[in-house]
């Protein structure tokens, strides 16, 4: 069975939701402590949301030096699927596994609300089971979700079809309405919205499941 490792830093708070979402789709999931220098035998890695190391200095700034991140980088370099959700996205940009940075929201409001997303590419570990142009209703919950990069990087992301999901109504000022991007290998994906909070009709939306289904498929290919 496909197994997903869910990285837990001090201050991470979405790990249980991610694990529940993966298990509901028939996958296996286990927590991985940030202080461990190696990953257990997993087929995919998720860095969930929260406030790793209190978000001190900058979100993700301290987390990039946690022992586990060396193993995560190695796993990603070998093509293993790695997904960063919200704070996990911030950690992946700080680590350099993904381009750009997440700035304070334009308007300086902490945003906790439903968001309408559009799938921009299905060529990524997180959207392979979706359709281009598909609309997904997945909530956001962040203060620093304003995707920022140089004009050159933005052009490169578009040229290389690496924008994974965009906002229909840009809530936070992100350049290019970007809600999620992937690396050149397309196995590392980061997004600000929380698919695990849209994984059951009881939560108001099941649209996040197509992302976890994609991740489990990518993990299976990688296994």
């Amino acid at each position: 069975m496909t197994k997903v490792g869910v990285v837990v830093f001090p201050g991470t708070n979405c790990e249980a939701d991610v694990i529940e979402s993966v298990r509901a789709l028939g996958g296996e999931a286990e927590m991985v402590w940030h202080g461990d220098a190696s990953l257990p035998a997993v087929d995919a890695v998720v860095i969930p949301g929260g406030f790793a190391h209190g978000d001190y200095l900058r979100p993700g700034a301290i987390a990039q030096f946690s022992a586990i991140m060396g193993a995560v980088k190695e796993f990603a370099d070998k093509g293993g699927p790695v997904v960063g959700i919200c704070n996990g996205f911030q950690v992946l940009t700080e680590t350099g596994l993904l381009p750009g940075a997440l700035q304070k929201n334009a308007g300086l409001k902490f945003l906790c609300q439903p968001a309408e997303l559009r799938v921009a590419t299905t060529n990524s570990a997180l959207t392979s089971a979706a359709e281009v142009g598909q609309t997904l209703h997945i909530p956001i919950n962040h203060f620093e979700g304003n995707f920022t990069c140089s004009p050159d990087t933005l052009a490169q992301l578009h040229d290389e079809d690496r924008v994974v999901v965009t906002y229909v109504d840009n809530p936070n000022g992100s350049m290019g309405d970007i809600a999620g991007v992937c690396n050149q290998g397309r196995n590392v994906v980061g997004l600000m919205p929380h698919p695990e909070r849209a994984s059951n009709a009881l939560l108001g939306s099941e649209d996040g499941n197509v992302m976890f289904t994609s991740l489990l498929q990518s993990a299976l290919t990688n296994a």
Binding site: R58, T93, E94, A101
Partner: peptide, 8 residues
């Protein structure tokens, strides 16, 4: 390495 994010 740590005190700034050179991207921004």
């Amino acid at each position: 390495k740590v005190l700034t994010n050179p991207v921004i």
